[in-house]
Write a protein that binds this DNA or RNA. Structure first.
Lengths: 206, 206, 206, 206
DNA sequence: AATGAATGAGCCTTCATTCAT
DNA sequence: TATGAATGAAGGCTCATTCAT
């Protein structure tokens, strides 16, 4: 496999690997300093690469920001999509919350989430990406909730489901913000709150 | 009233008025560009003032940011405190949501809320201000919920109230973020969601 | 004496008093911060006067600097002229040195002396004022030295006197700089040095 | 020599060369305008470099000032140290004076000397550097004078030497200032003064 | 592919000076 | 006479971006 195609594939793999390295470093910088306050030099330091080289892989700083946002949306979506393979919403939210608290890089980062949402009010391109992600997430919630309802032998109306999907979305994003608060929330409180809300939202209440 | 005291009072009033003008303009700029991307020149333009003059009223840009944050927290607190004089939570949330949507400057601005929360993860001074505001807001929710429970003839445990206060806080903040979304949420959906959640949260459910 | 002339005299006296107050405060500021680093606001604070009022008495900051320099030159000249009434050069130098060390405002200030001399290399107006002061000081030294020589029954040549006047001038300015040094010079050392040099310079040697 | 070490050496040489270019230009600017009045833009112009690039080589303007001062002190010390290889103090002082008059950049610059001494009264870091330089210069004078005494078959006391070292130091600094005066001093006058003082100071007098 | 030197616009901040009161 | 609010031009410094090597 020493063909041009093979070489090209390998090259593209390498390019992709470089892009990933940059994005990981950039993510750490953006979390630490924010989109605007993080400098290209910060990122170059973090990725152990020269500034110039970063520009071989990304057109400019803004396109790094966009790539990071896309990534975050991907992780957000993956979290929701996972519900379909793992229907225990209560446990998943608790786990997600713990990951947020520990800065786990495999899930959407709450600080970046805030920066993204703020930036979306200014940059139409970001706004569009977020709107699309929201649409997909909404649909996922919808699907999951319908399945959950049916598993309970319920036949909720479309509006019933929409209200619950909307509430769920709000609560999860509210929790993402809460995970950033200084006074650490104890596990019991979170669980109590989920035990209060989830039966209602997942058609398990009386 | 041409006394020294009178003059002094007028001077202080004027200084305070100038500070207010600056803060209003700064708020618009911060909403439009973000804390970091907004420049002092932007603010000076917005307030129709020279850059230098702003520094007569604020030590530096950061102290303007802090003042804006304090203001926002004040408005946030006022919104919650108002619940005590107007116990119709459902209507208040709907009104609040509408104000968020319209950028009403008399309530906490959702974009600034996001910037604040993000910035708090970097600046300890901001973090502390927010922690204090959260503490107060939590206590206000608590008090309001206990009163609501008693109005229903209920005697909920401390944990019952805490879980509901926490849920309420999350949902309201989640709604603040939702208010920024592009695809406008219709009023009916919001109302349906509130009708779903509020009875549970305010001890009005079966 | 309620005539116009009287009133005018009183007014001028007041104006002169104000100018003096300003110059005293400015001198403190210039010593503390340097000519360029001291701001008009510093000076206004130090005189307990508004910035605007200072501009009633001085055209601009530079003319304050010039006035201060004139003042310093006046004090420098007075020191030298005093030799004629008090011929004990040794004691006078020791006293002068002590005053320099203590920041006595009645004699030429060593820090301002340095600033002045440096500034003179840039500003022709200052250069001229200093050249004139130097000329006068040189002549004073001359006169004093000739008198001292005659008191010793000597008849030195013009060149003898010039060499001594020049040496004296250098040494006194060298001492002004030394008075600023951190490691404090003990009185005995200064006296030993003067005892070494002065007999030679004042025609009292062998 | 295309090795890493070679490249690294070349790079460091270049960096050092840039630093030197900047310092030379800065020195010219500081002499022309003074430490505070010279702007980074002035220096950038003088060194034919962008402002930003200067900041790659120096942390800030103050560190350029410090570097210039260190340089000046180095040159000052070299002048004194040279006495040991060239014991003709009289000729050396005359040469030094001529260099001061002509702005020879290889010896301590008198204007910078003044700025330095003035600045040392405000900046402890500069004060310390100057104090150290003074200590070394004093010791050098000491050593030279003791050798000169011994060459004359004299055995002066410690105090004898100290008084002469102190006098010498004062006179040389006094001469540095004199070299800045407008009315140019003729060579004969300087020589006459030195012929008067040096025999006394170097133990050659009767 | 990789470096990092170089640029220059722009940012925050200060300050001499003016002027309405 | 006296104030200090107001201006705007620098000043020091940073940083996204380019380019020769």
């Amino acid at each position: 496999m020493n063909t041009d195609a093979g070489r090209s594939a390998r090259v593209m793999d390498r390019a992709q690997a470089q892009r990933d390295r940059i994005l990981c470093a950039a993510q750490r910088c953006f979390i630490e300093h924010g989109f605007h306050a993080a400098s290209m030099a910060n990122i170059a330091d973090a990725v152990q690469m020269s500034v110039g080289l970063i520009y071989r892989y990304f057109e400019n700083k803004n396109s790094i920001i966009l790539a990071i946002i896309d990534r975050q949306l991907g992780e957000q979506r993956a979290s929701i999509a996972d519900l379909n393979t793992d229907p225990d919403l209560r446990r998943r939210i608790i786990e997600l919350f713990a990951k947020w608290r520990h800065g786990d890089p495999t899930v959407m980062n709450p600080v970046l989430f805030l920066e993204m949402r703020a930036e979306a009010t200014r940059d139409p391109q970001i706004a569009q990406a977020l709107a699309e992600a929201d649409r997909i997430a909404g649909a996922d919630f919808h699907a999951w909730l319908r399945k959950a309802a049916e598993a309970q032998g319920r036949s909720p109306t479309q509006q019933d489901i929409e209200a619950r999907a909307f509430a769920l979305h709000c609560i999860i994003e509210g929790l993402a913000i809460r995970s950033l608060r200084e006074p650490t929330l104890d596990a019991a409180s979170l669980e109590a709150t989920l035990d209060l809300l989830l039966p209602l939202l997942t058609f398990r209440d009386g």
